[in-house]
Amino acid sequence: MHPFDAVRARSVVKTFGDVIALDGVDLDVAAGQIHGLVGPNGAGKTTLLGLVLGLAAADAGTLEILGMPMGRALSVADGVAGFVDGPGLYPTLTARQNLMTLLALRGERTSRSREVDELLGRVGLAEVSGDAVRGFSLGMRQRLGLAAALLGGPRLLVLDEPANGLDPAGRRQVHDVLTDLADSGATVVLSSHRMDDLASLCDEVTLLSAGRVVFSGPVHKLAAESGELDYRLITSDPEGARGVADGTPSLRRVTARNGSRQGDEQALVVRGPEAALDRLVAQLIGAGIAIRELGPVVPPLEAAFLALTGTEADINAEETTR
């Protein structure tokens, strides 16, 4: 017996009028995996998550959720939970009432009320469980939405930007909950704009751009797609460093844009392969120029994102003449 895919999409197309939101999307999410969806605004992430949740039907292609083909009718498969475009909560109800009414919907009010308290504790809302949701911050709502999605132990959890509005502690808490869920065998599909979130949480990511999949695979492979990176150096002699950089083969010097970090007028930003950067460092040291700071302008995952989605030109630097 083979492990099956929790989500399996083939050539999925979804349009809204003249707008093609998804254009032949293939997606495989193995059961038990935390899978990230990433892409620029309008790439089709939310639409894809909506299809997985059964909130809409694809115009073409096939979509199987937990092994079941999704039909044309709007319906959410059993064992699937989650939210897109923020959690749906009722502000006039308390946090506990929001979850209890969901339990009541499933006819489990009395037998599972302890689960509600446990879930509220897991997402750090035990102390405010009796407060009306109207007074909750965005982060608290996100956590309560996660708790609502976890009610009943879903086998596939679909979350759209679950870390939105969360402080670092809240983000850590959500990460722990999702990791525990995946460890228990459930599948998590989430979208995020935060590449660091995806890197620390996901086994695999799918990168969407303009409704098409431009990458799908392990996170470390995405980093390899970043190509040449820009590196930022702060040295003891900026003028001298620029001269050395200009004389280094395979290395281009780029200038920082307006709005760059404080002190960037003193920074040297170069682009080229790692070998060329190594040579530059050696030459700077040889020339008696101290290197005070060295790092990529854009982290590798983010750079890969920008390169693959064609938005590289938007990075915080632009090429100039050597």
């Binding site: 099956f4 059961a31 038990g32 937990l66 319906s75 059993d78 699937v80």
Partner: peptide, 12 residues
């Protein structure tokens, strides 16, 4: 990673 095997098809 834990893979779920042999799980029956779900219904709505």
């Amino acid at each position: 990673m834990t893979a779920i095997v042999g799980v029956p098809l779900v219904r709505t």
